[in-house]
Design a protein around this nucleic acid. Structure first.
Lengths: 121, 121
DNA sequence: GCGGTACTTTACCTTTCAGTTATTTAACAG
DNA sequence: CTGTTAAATAACTGAAAGGTAAAGTACCGC
């Protein structure tokens, strides 16, 4: 039951795989907000928003407070750090493609005449 | 039809929200591999792996080649760059908590006497 | 062509997900 | 206590996800 890193990433990525939930996080980056406030930009019922908040809460991306009849939500970015760290491992691969693109552009510009090119790898 | 950034992020985060698929990407970071090779570590049928590969391909995270009867997959990290950039916006929020922790530790250690501190925010 | 290897596709099943409306709980204002 | 506002919960629906077994496709070696 001890929620492994893998399970945490599952929930975090799962929570982020929805535009409404990402937009809610975007709003919360500006400060905490009530459910009504969070719902305003969306053509969605309140229970719908409530459900999204529960998903975000389960992923640890938000925490809920209490202010009289309001239950404000606030951003908890811890899981996003895990996402950033997971992603970081692949940085070389997307930077690499720019390197290859640069090479290719060099080739086009100047000495463009190596061979017919059978396979990329 | 023009696949917006939002839709691309949906598919990317969605694809990453599964441990099998993340493990496949991890394997592909070491170089391209056939479906059999990719399937080996998992207790899952070949069609299962095939489906996961299709999800990854739709998200643009892998590309498929052809080498005789094999259809090797290779990593395409472009979408991960988008993830890194999306996440970056929230960096201040997870670093912020460490700052507060640092402050707290400073307070405990040495000059613990700024003010009474009524509310955490 | 035939048999084997490496997949992909199809058809199906079960579980989860995103959304709804209707009902219930909680906190306040008179 | 009554009514109103804020939100959560329940019950339901349709669609998508994740898995399987079985059939189909593509390529190779002989």
């Amino acid at each position: 039951m001890s929620t492994t890193t893998e399970e945490r990433l599952d929930r975090t990525f799962g929570a982020l795989a929805d535009p409404t939930r990402r937009a809610i996080l975007g709003r919360l980056a500006e400060g905490e907000a009530s459910v009504m406030e969070l719902a305003k930009p969306f053509a969605m019922s309140l229970p719908g928003i409530s459900k999204h908040l529960k998903v975000l809460e389960r992923a640890g991306l938000i925490a809920r407070g209490r202010d009289r009849q309001w239950r404000p939500a606030r951003l908890e970015a811890g899981p996003l750090k895990d996402v950033a760290e997971w992603t970081e491992r692949y940085r070389q691969f997307w930077e690499e493609s720019y390197e290859r693109l640069d090479e290719y552009l060099d080739e086009l510009q100047g000495r463009g005449k190596e061979q017919g090119d059978g396979s990329k790898r």
